[in-house]
């Protein structure tokens, strides 16, 4: 079922991304459309990688996903080699992949490639950033700072806002359901 969630729209030309970003400058939380490239030059070149619409799924567990829209504004492919964040002790780049006929979440070997001039959407059921070993529950509306280390040597930092979402939870829910059912049967017997 999770394959359904892997969107075909994951790569959108940046021209569309810019239009979309224009619409979203209206958004109230400036913090979740922040993007900072550290190597801006005095010649006025723009940020090479922009992150918009970043959010982190709320949880009181030990790990959670970080999502957003990442735009590569250059004419060369760039790879996200690694990531870190202020909410957890460890951060991995994850993908959903078919392994032995089952869709599983696993670390993405070689990092997340951002094709030249394209936009990559990190979202539930697709590539995403995994915060592991959370130091505290992630609560709704909280801001978590995330830093990406890129293959061109730059780092990009942005803030992800805590947001409750059941997206991609269907497997967990069906597990919950079956255990509930079993307990109910136990009560009835």
């Amino acid at each position: 079922m999770l394959t359904v969630l892997a969107r075909t729209r994951a790569r959108i030309p940046v021209i569309a991304a810019v239009l979309m970003a224009g619409a979203l400058t209206l958004a109230a939380c400036g913090s979740n459309s922040d993007s900072v490239a550290t190597d801006d030059t005095a010649s006025g070149s723009t940020a090479t990688v922009m992150v918009t619409d970043a959010w982190i799924r709320t949880t009181d567990g030990t790990m959670t996903g970080i999502f957003g829209v990442i735009s590569n504004t250059t004419d060369e492919d760039i790879t996200i080699n690694s990531a870190s964040n202020t909410a957890s002790s460890m951060t991995e780049l994850h993908e959903m992949a078919m392994v032995d006929g089952e869709m599983v979440m696993q670390e993405k070997a070689g990092g997340v490639v951002l094709p030249a001039g394209q936009q990559v959407v990190l979202e539930p059921g697709a590539d995403h950033i995994m915060a592991m070993g959370l130091l505290a529950p992630v609560v709704a509306g909280e801001e978590v700072e995330v830093t990406l280390t890129l293959s061109n040597g730059e780092t990009v930092s942005f803030k992800a806002i805590g947001k409750e979402s059941a997206a991609g939870d269907e497997d967990y829910h069906s597990d919950d359901k079956s255990s509930d059912d079993m307990m109910n049967h136990g009560d009835m017997s």
């Binding site: 209206l26 958004a27 109230a28 939380c29 709704a140």
Partner: peptide, 14 residues
């Protein structure tokens, strides 16, 4: 409550 209003305002703005 401040966190809530930031989230809700962002939703509404979009």
């Amino acid at each position: 409550v401040a966190r809530m209003m930031r989230l809700l305002s962002d939703d509404a703005a979009r």
